[in-house]
Amino acid sequence: MTLIMVVDDDQDLGEMLGIVLNGAGYEVDLVSRGDQVMELFTAQNPDLVLLDVMLPGIDGVEVCKLIREKSMVPIVMLTAKGDTQDVVAGLEAGADDYMVKPFNPSELVARIKVRLRRNSADVTSALRIGNIEIDQIAHSIVREGQSVPLTRLEFDLLVALAKEPGRVFTREALLSEVWGYRPATDTRLVNVHIQRLRSKVEADPENPKIILTVRGVGYKAGVPGSAE
């Protein structure tokens, strides 16, 4: 059964989240303090983490960084301040997505489903983007003979770009493709994750060869084998 770790200092909200997620068929682990997360995380090894930003002990952004040091597990941040730096800070710390309180429970479940879905589409062809080889079966990428760890979201983002090498993706298109959103939501998600992905796969993130920016439109994949 899929295990979701819910980190929130509000006991009632945690319990309610437990009820809703149990109803949707997930198992739930509740943690109420930021400094208890890592211990439980190592013990339980959850499939997804729902993380509140404001936490006693260590705050959510720090917790997010700690988890990312160990694991590529999908992280969804819960925040009460959708408009502040919290969102960007959380995304830069490695969160895949965020939900602004008060959220609709059915939307939360839908987002969690997208984050947990296995990329079960056609995995026949080996994909290449720039000098990166993507192994869709092993869910890993190889750059210059070395394996590079990616979060599932980063992997999905890279695959989406690599599958259609000629296509220019708008930020809205990437949002609906990778995050499963209706278009015209928050494009900061895309910007932050492209930056993170570039820092992992590009030789020189300032001068990207693999994920190219198309000014005023969006992003596209670099030509296979052209880099360096």
């Binding site: 509000d10 009632d12 909200l13 309610m16 989240l17 009820i19 809703v20 009460a80 309180k101 008060p102 959220f103 609709n104 429970p105």
Partner: peptide, 8 residues
């Protein structure tokens, strides 16, 4: 936060 709980 309480509103989120109430809503759910």
């Amino acid at each position: 936060t309480p509103l989120t709980t109430m809503r759910m």
